[in-house]
């Protein structure tokens, strides 16, 4: 059976509890918004396939619990991620300050090559804003990341944010991508290759491994 996608990779949503990580994800994958929902315990995930430059990109997005103690469980997902969303809530100064902590955890536990993007969610709540757009822009610049203000409620910048990170991950792995273009029929499962460290048999597999492990 032909695979439904050409490339597969993992993205991870990080940020304080209550900043709207789950809502961002629901809006992106199902185009739904539930004002009342339940807090995430441990990890959850969703999938979506995007078409970028003619390539079918299957992304797994892991949604994590924001409370600090769940990091015991969520940290093991950092090293398997190719892209990471650092999310804060524009109505919470505290969640913005914590981005530094999240970013340093990512530096420590995620692969060096991981792509990051900064997201200021709840942009619709203008009256409650505590973090100015410029602050977000500045922080993103300092980290060398792209930055988006989003609203899962109004569907503002949602697909733009997810698509941008997906594009960045693709660009960062251009070598594999070019290989893919020459043999578009071969399945290139980046996530799986990464896990099979040292177990790749085929020559092609070895080439991927060189880039991914």
């Amino acid at each position: 059976m032909a695979k439904q996608y050409d490339v597969l990779f993992r993205l991870l949503l990080l940020g304080d509890s209550g900043v709207g990580k789950t809502c961002l994800l629901c809006r992106f994958t199902d185009n739904e918004f539930h004002p009342s929902h339940i807090s995430t315990i441990g990890v959850d995930f969703k999938m979506k396939t995007l078409l970028i430059d003619g390539i079918k990109v299957r992304i797994q997005i892991w949604d994590t619990a924001g409370q600090e103690r769940y990091q015991t469980i969520t940290k093991q997902y950092y090293r398997r991620a190719q892209g990471i969303f650092l999310v804060y809530d524009i109505t919470s100064e505290r969640s913005f300050q914590h981005i530094m902590k999240w970013a340093s955890d990512v530096d420590e536990y995620a692969p060096d090559k991981v792509q990051k993007i900064l997201v200021g969610n709840k942009s619709d709540e203008v009256d409650k804003r505590q973090v100015a757009t410029e602050q977000g822009v500045k922080l993103a610049k300092a980290y060398g990341m792209d930055f988006f203000e989003t609203s899962a409620f109004t569907n503002h910048n949602i697909s733009e944010t997810f698509t941008r990170l997906a594009e960045q991950v693709l660009a960062a792995n251009k070598k594999d991508l070019d290989l893919l273009r020459t043999s578009i029929n071969d399945e290139l499962n980046l996530a799986a290759l990464e896990e099979e460290e040292g177990l790749c048999d085929s020559a092609a597999g070895d080439q991927h491994k060189g880039c991914w492990c």
């Binding site: 509890s17 209550g18 539930h34 009342s36 929902h37 339940i38 807090s39 409370q67």
Partner: peptide, 13 residues
């Protein structure tokens, strides 16, 4: 603060 943020996220229905 943390508890208050979770109060409406338990059994919303």
């Amino acid at each position: 603060d943390v508890i208050e943020r979770d109060l409406d996220r338990q059994f919303p229905f």
